[in-house]
């Protein structure tokens, strides 16, 4: 057994040295995991999630890198030698893995520029959902229907990113058509009252409710409401149905598409169906 452990793999490095390095790295990984798990539990309600995750990643990889640098001499590798070898290896690896490097650099820019944060609702190149993680090589999205989507950072960096919650508040809009015979001023009053009653329909910027145009089938009222970015979708869903039911409760109806047709010549219609061929 001792012979196997003492067997020289190269230069003065024995099997024992390699095993020692493996054990140290495993222990370092376990320690890093333990520390980050406990820190996450301790700080999850005290820090923003994206900042916490970034801090935990730095701690996790920091411990592993320090442990790795610490055991390098055991493997017969000196840091000074590594710098020279690393330079050459870097060129070789760079050519061999251009896309990986592109993703890495994009990832660094994404983390520093911060167009998106963990937990944000975004749309990248048609993929919409919540940002689950921004890694060094890729960005993980959980779509609204719960799918896991991994997007390489290079694509994220070069695509148009729509961040729905980057700003603190956002506006949404309805167009509500009422009959020409209905009282538009009364409808506007009803809609304004409903908006006032909703806690998350913001008082300022003031909501706008006005007759926008006289359509083919209806008088169209535009409703513009600002809401906190985190709440806008629930406000939008709740208010539309409330407006519809409240308008109907007050005798104001949303008309179906209709067209009045005038005939140049009077038409003779058989409404009673007494002629032959119309009998049941």
């Amino acid at each position: 057994m001792m012979d196997v452990l003492g067997y020289k793999l190269y230069e003065d490095v024995t099997v024992y040295d390699v095993l020692f390095v493996v054990v140290v790295m495993v222990v370092a990984t376990i320690v890093a995991k333990l520390i980050t798990t406990n820190l996450r539990r301790a700080l999850i309600d005290k820090m923003k999630r994206d900042q916490l995750e970034l801090m935990l990643k730095i701690i996790y990889f920091g411990i592993i890198v320090i442990a790795f640098i610490g055991v390098l001499p055991t493997l017969g590798l000196e840091l000074s030698g590594l710098l020279v070898a690393g330079g050459i290896a870097g060129i070789v690896i760079g050519f061999a893995s251009q896309s990986v490097v592109a993703n890495l650099v994009s990832g660094i820019f994404l983390i520093s520029e911060k167009p998106i944060k963990i937990g944000d609702q975004i749309n990248i190149d048609g993929v919409a959902g919540f940002v689950e993680d921004v890694n060094i090589l890729s960005t993980i999205i959980r779509t609204y229907d719960g799918l896991y989507v991994r997007i390489p950072n290079e694509k994220v960096f070069t695509s148009n990113i729509t961040n729905y919650v980057a700003h603190i508040a956002r506006r949404f809009e309805y167009v509500i058509g009422i009959r020409y015979s209905d009282d538009a001023e009364k409808a506007i009053e009803i809609i304004k009252n409903l908006i006032e009653d909703h806690p998350f329909a913001l008082k300022n910027p003031e909501p706008q409710v006005f007759v926008d145009n006289l359509g083919d089938n209806s008088v169209n009222i535009v409703v513009r409401i600002w809401a906190p970015s985190t709440e806008w979708y629930s406000v939008k869903m709740e208010l539309l149905w409330k407006i519809k039911t409240e308008l109907e409760r007050n005798g104001i109806e949303i008309p179906f598409p209709q067209r009045v047709v005038w005939f140049a010549n009077e038409l003779k219609a058989n409404v009673e169906g007494k002629e032959e061929g119309w009998q049941a």
Binding site: H167, I168, A169, R170, F200, L202, K203, N204, P205, P228
Partner: peptide, 19 residues
């Protein structure tokens, strides 16, 4: 009381407040 919220500042950098 019925709660109501508002925006103080602009939508880019303002803050949501209880009104």
């Amino acid at each position: 009381n019925k709660p109501k919220f508002t925006l103080y500042g602009d939508p880019r950098a303002g803050i949501i407040c209880r009104y």
